[in-house]
Structure formats: C-alpha cells, structure tokens
Computed example of a mutant assay.
Amino acid sequence: MTSGTSGPPAGAAHSRRGPGSAVAVVTGAAGGLGQVIAARLHEQGYRVALTDLSGERAERAASALDPSGGTAVGLCLDVRIKADFERVRDAITARWGEVHVLVNNAGVSKAEPLMDITPESFSSVVSTNLDGAFFGSQVFGAYFAGRGHGRIVNVASLAGQNGGTATGAHYAAAKGGVATLTKVFARDLADRGVTVNAVSPGPLDVPAVYEIVGPERIEGMKENIPVGDLLSPRFVADAVALLAAEHAGSVTGACWDVNGGLYMR
C-alpha cells in the first residue's frame, strides 16, 4: 500500500452494498466477544464469516446463526499467518462475491506476573494479538482499497491504554500496538474509501473475564469500576457495527472507549 494516492486503481470497482448484500469477516468469532459481534452483524443483515483457530468451533458458532450456511459460515483461521487471511479472503469472495467489513477481534491473554513472562510466552501473545491485526489489516486493507470501499474495525483494550497488567503485560503491550496500527492503516487508506477504527473495551461480562479474575474477586472488580458493573459485550458489538456501517465514512483512525469510566480522556 502506498500513501498519497487519490483513489482506487484505474478500473477498480467502487463497491457499494446493496440491500442484504453486506459481507463481514470476524476473527476469533467462535466464542466470547467475537461471537457476540458476529451475531450482532448477522442480526443487522450481514452475511458473516466467523473465523477461529478452531475451524470446528467456528462452524458450530456459524451454524447457530444459520444452519443452512446461506448467511453464516465458519472457517479456520490462524491470525498469526498472513496466508491464512488470504485464503479466507479468497474463500469468502468465491462464496459471496465480495467482502465489505473486517473485524480484527482474535486475541489471547495470559495472567502472568510481569517478571515471570518468558520470551516464548511474550512472543506467542504478541503474535496473536498484534500480528493478527497487522496481517488482517494488510490483506483486507489492500483488497478494500482496490475496490474503493471498506471498513476495518480492530478490537483494542483498556490494558493497552493504561498499562494494566491484570491480563498480562504482553497482552497490554500488544493491544497498545493495535491502537497505533489502527492510526497507521487509517492514515494510509483514508483516500481510498477505507476506514480503520478501533473499539477499546474494559472488563467485559464474558466468561474469559471470570476465568482470569476468579469468581471470588469479581465483586471487588465491579466495585472498582465507576459505573459499578462489568461492561456489556453487546454494546461493544453495537459500537463495532456502527463503525462498520456504510455511512460511517466520516470516522477513521478513532478509538472508541467502552470502559465504564476506568479511563477517561
């Protein structure tokens, strides 16, 4: 991708969505927040490709939305591998003709003490959270730019903004990188009809938070959140859907915070 171009390449199709024709790819969609995002987009009429490291789990999640496979499909995707994004792009365009939205949601966290994080653990967490956002934005960003229209929404994190280590310093570092990559891709792709934004959640009411924090500490966590409760994954999904909308072209390079008042700026 090269900055400074004035529009899509000569002869490129300027893709606009017809009624019921929008297609979205969501990474890490077999469970948790990714599954909620995929379900919300599907409710809004998108055809959705749910991708995950486990193709079997992705297929089950897709089948829960549409057993026929007409409007939801599950695919295996290792976000650490650029060629996997290219394979998914090609599979979905062959199936549904085009893609309009990419949601880079896939991530992994490990609650490890800062000084005990091994080089292998650091690389593994950063690769999934940061490399995945980079490769996804690179592959689909180029595809969208060639068509003259597209939406990329990255899932960042409060940890990447305030340096929180409850989910691991490697996770916080990677999510800080996701916020920066959002701006980098947004700047590069803005003049080609492609927006790139991020949503940055705090502690969500999802199983992973209960597993990391522990049931005995959840109430204490809620007390430390200004609004007094864990945060709604469905609202995060609504924010993603709004940034993914065709008429959302006025917003790019932004990071929308959903943290219950834990981090105000």
Rank of each mutant, 00 (worst) to 15 (best):
S6I: 11
S6W: 09
G7T: 06
G11S: 04
R17L: 15
G20I: 00
A24W: 05
T27G: 05
G32I: 03
A38T: 12
A38L: 12
E43I: 02
E43G: 11
Q44V: 09
L53T: 11
A58K: 15
A64P: 03
G70Q: 04
T71F: 06
G74C: 04
A83D: 11
F85S: 14
R87N: 03
V88W: 05
V88T: 12
A91E: 15
I92Q: 14
T93M: 07
E98R: 08
V103Y: 04
V103D: 01
V103P: 04
N105S: 03
A106D: 00
S109C: 15
L114W: 11
L114S: 10
I117A: 04
T118I: 04
E120M: 04
S123C: 03
V125W: 00
D131C: 02
A133V: 10
F134G: 02
F135V: 00
Q138K: 04
V139R: 06
G150M: 15
R151C: 14
N154P: 01
G164N: 08
T165G: 07
T167R: 13
G168K: 01
H170I: 04
A173E: 08
V178K: 10
A179D: 11
F185K: 00
A186H: 02
L189C: 00
G193K: 07
V199D: 11
D205P: 01
P207K: 03
A208F: 13
V213H: 14
V213K: 14
V213F: 15
P215K: 14
P215W: 11
G220T: 05
G220Q: 06
M221C: 07
E223P: 03
P226E: 11
V227F: 05
F235K: 11
F235M: 09
V236T: 13
A237P: 04
D238Q: 13
D238C: 10
E246Q: 11
H247D: 10
G249T: 15
S250C: 09
G253L: 01
G261R: 09
M264A: 13
